[in-house]
Amino acid sequence: MAKIKIEDLKKIKEKIQAETSLRAGDRRVKVTVHMGTCGIASGARGVLDALMAEIAESGAKDIAVTTSGCMGLCSREPLVTVEVLDQDPIKYEYMNPNKMRQVFKRHILQGEIQTPFVLAKGAEIVK
């Protein structure tokens, strides 16, 4: 494989800029992977990785990914929050890469909440 260069980053930048100019309201879904000590120790980074790979494979352009800290429910980590625009956030518990792929395909892309993995509906209060 050819070596990755900073010029490749320029190409990506230009591609993203071209895509962004084509649409108005771009972010449809925000996914938060909880990345506190508890989340990290129970596999949150692998969950985030699986999510990123799914996004790349699907070519979806309207999904933002972020992380957050611990919310106090360490025993149910890894936790993932999926917020579809204009809908209540859904918190998934005991996540792993496989469950993440399922949530991505069924919930994020097709709008079908994966109730067996759901911990709660709604947002937590972070202190």
Partner: peptide, 15 residues
């Protein structure tokens, strides 16, 4: 280098 394009854009993160 990114010139305003968010660094946490999924394409950039993959790069």
């Amino acid at each position: 280098e990114l010139d305003g394009v968010p660094i946490n854009h999924t394409d950039v993160l993959h790069f």
